[in-house]
Simulated scan of single mutants.
Amino acid sequence: MASFQKYTTKKDGTMWLYKYYTGEINPVTGKKKPSTKRGFKTKAEAKLDAAQTEKEVADGTFIKQDKTITFEEVYEQWYETNSPTFKPPTRKAVRSKFKSQILPHFGNVKINDITRSYCQEVINKIAKKIKSVENMKMYANQVFEFAVLMDISKSNPMKGVIIPKKESDHLAEGKKMRNYWEKHEIKKFLGITKQACSYRDHLMFHLLIYTGARKGEVLALRWNDIDFRENIINFDKTLFFDKKTFTPLTSKTPASRRVLSLDDTTLALLKKHRTEQSRGIVQPIGPNDDRMVFTREDGTPIRLAYPNDKLNEIIRSNNLHKITVHGLRHTHASLLFEAGASIKEVQERLGHSDIKMTMNIYTHVTKAVKEKTADRFEKFMEFDPPITGSEVVTSDQE
Rank of each mutant, 00 (worst) to 15 (best):
N135E: 15
K37S: 10
Y20S: 02
H332Q: 01
K165I: 00
H332T: 05
P284M: 11
I281P: 02
A46D: 12
K356R: 09
K55W: 06
I130A: 11
P164A: 03
T90I: 00
S261H: 02
Y118C: 07
F380K: 11
P254T: 04
D225P: 10
K187F: 04
V325Y: 01
F62P: 05
S168Y: 13
K131Q: 13
R214C: 06
R116F: 00
E348Y: 08
K10N: 15
Q277A: 07
A339Q: 02
T266Y: 04
T14S: 12
C197F: 00
Y21R: 15
I192M: 13
Y79K: 10
T300F: 08
R376W: 08
S256Q: 01
P254E: 12
I226T: 09
K367D: 14
F241T: 13
S35V: 04
I314L: 09
V218S: 05
K55I: 09
G160Y: 04
T250K: 15
P84W: 08
H326Y: 06
E313D: 08
K19N: 14
A255H: 10
D201E: 03
V57E: 02
K11A: 15
L267Y: 09
E54N: 13
G216H: 10
K356I: 00
T85P: 00
I302D: 08
E24Q: 14
A213R: 00
A341Y: 07
C197I: 11
E217A: 07
Y118S: 06
N312L: 11
A147D: 01
P301W: 00
G327K: 03
Q5T: 06
I302Y: 02
I152D: 06
L48D: 13
R258M: 01
T266H: 02
T245R: 14
Y18P: 06
E56F: 07
N360F: 00
H326M: 07
E182M: 08
A220V: 12
G23H: 00
N179A: 01
P284R: 12
R296V: 04
N231A: 15
P254N: 06
I387V: 15
I361N: 01
I314H: 06
M177Q: 15
D151Y: 07
I25C: 03
D225S: 07
D66F: 01
E24Y: 09
K272Y: 05
T247E: 13
N108M: 05
E371W: 01
K55A: 13
